[in-house]
């Protein structure tokens, strides 16, 4: 069996990023009902039947089971954390659940540096981030503000 790679993301510095820079896209999937079930178990939250019962999902007018929006947001938050490196401090994060992610969909995670700036001696990076599916539809647009370490500033 392949082991999961367990390591902290490398340290990245404010100086490693520039405005307009694309961050390396990441793809996950195909999504499985199992991803959703594992998330429901982790959160001890089983209240929305349409997340695990296709019959009820369709009865409520959905095309089928959909994955939880907060799960997609949490995946996006994880990718942002990995992009920005071990010593970055996430200050703000936002997401919108604009489109559904369903079992067998792919999730492509994209990020772009929107702004780099300093304020009161601290260095910040604003990101635009999003999840798109295999049809190119943006399901989860988001944004983040991250405080970054400075190169040569010491630990």
């Amino acid at each position: 069996m392949l082991k999961v790679e367990t390591r902290e993301p490398p340290v990245r510095f404010f100086e490693d990023f520039r405005e307009g820079q694309d961050l390396p896209s990441v793809t996950r999937g195909p999504m499985l009902v199992g991803h959703q079930v594992r998330w429901a178990g982790a959160c001890d939250n089983y209240e929305s039947e349409f997340h695990h019962d296709e019959y009820i999902a369709k009865a409520q007018g959905l095309p089928g089971i959909i994955l939880s929006g907060p799960l997609m947001a949490s995946w996006l938050l994880t990718i942002v954390k990995d992009w920005m490196g071990r010593d970055a401090r996430l200050v703000r994060f936002a997401d919108q659940n604009r489109g559904s992610t369903m079992p067998r969909d792919l999730a492509h995670f994209h990020g772009k540096v929107k702004r780099t700036y300093e304020d009161a001696g601290r260095a910040y990076i604003e990101l635009e981030c999003s999840i798109t599916n295999q049809r190119g539809e943006v399901t989860t647009p988001g944004s983040a503000l991250v405080e970054m370490p400075r190169r040569g500033a010491g630990a």
Binding site: V4, R38, W39, G41, A42, W75, L77, T78, K81
Partner: peptide, 9 residues
């Protein structure tokens, strides 16, 4: 594990 974040922290 559910959010596939495998950082050892």
């Amino acid at each position: 594990q559910a959010v596939m974040d495998h950082a050892p922290r």
